[in-house]
């Protein structure tokens, strides 16, 4: 964007909103909104504390396990659904149902089934992330050019070759799109899981800070999470652009 002939740096609108936040905070309108500067000071003061690093590592562990499981199961299942009519008929209603279901309501059930710990949080993360990965992989495979499949067959490709050399690559732009949305949903999943179970990771921190009205701490942790989610999404968007050269030309 340009303003008075000067090119503004990317995300300069963030500065504007940050300024607004700072002013409202300084005006002491409500204790829920401490000044942004105070939030950042708190942020740097808690970032090295054992409570924070523990929360961060637990969250990172739950998040990355959940995402890896979702990708490893989601992509093959989606490709399978896209190639086999039977599998598709059996699974599609469930995938659609889970995609739109209010999964938060399931978390208490998961806690009963898998206990108040890491396992439940990982499963919650998977439940948030996996369905869109499945659906996008399926959609990617279904739009594949039939003659590519025939070509591979005519040159003697077996099922495995077709899977790894044709279907996967042909569907890759859609798969990456699905993975990106899935990961964004996984961020939600891991936080919601932790909040509901509330004795692990950032869930425990949030619980602690909000119960003690430590709003600067609360916002500091939230900003960290937002920043992490944003970075992950940007990295995946970059990967998507890497395959864009053939995405439109299939």
């Amino acid at each position: 964007m340009k303003l008075f002939g000067y090119k503004l740096p990317a995300m300069s609108s963030l500065l504007l909103w940050g300024l607004l936040w700072e002013i409202i905070g300084q005006m002491d309108v409500t204790f829920f909104v401490p000044p942004l500067s105070e939030v950042f000071v708190t942020l740097f003061s808690i970032i090295g504390t054992p409570a924070f690093t523990k929360a961060l590592s637990e969250t990172a562990y739950a998040f990355s396990s959940g995402v890896v499981i979702s990708i490893l199961i989601g992509i093959p299942v989606g490709i399978l659904m896209g190639t086999s009519r039977l599998v598709d008929e059996i699974l599609l209603p469930w995938v659609n149902m889970f995609l739109s279901a209010p999964l938060t309501a399931l978390v208490p059930v998961l806690m009963v089934l898998f206990g108040f710990g890491m396992k439940s949080i990982i499963i919650t993360t998977v439940l948030f992330a996996i369905w869109i990965i499945v659906l996008n992989s399926r959609a990617g495979v279904m739009q594949i050019n039939r003659s590519l499949v025939e070509m591979a067959k005519s040159f003697g490709a077996n099922k495995m070759d077709a899977f790894t050399k044709i279907y996967f690559w042909a569907a890759l732009p859609e798969i990456l799109g699905g993975v990106r949305i899935g990961i964004i949903r996984a961020v939600k999943g891991v936080i919601i899981g932790q909040l509901l179970i509330s004795i692990v990771g950032f869930g425990a921190l949030f619980e602690l800070y909000s119960a003690n009205f430590l709003m600067a701490h609360f916002w500091a942790v939230l900003i960290v999470l937002f920043a992490l989610a944003f970075c992950i999404s940007e990295i995946l968007a970059y990967l998507e652009r890497r395959v864009a050269y053939y995405a439109a030309k299939r």
């Binding site: 050019n145 003659s147 025939e150 070509m151 040159f155 395959v243």
Partner: peptide
């Protein structure tokens, strides 16, 4: 060996 009407090349 088959030659396809729409070429059937791997775009990637």
């Amino acid at each position: 060996a088959f030659v396809f009407q729409d070429f059937a090349l791997l775009p990637w």
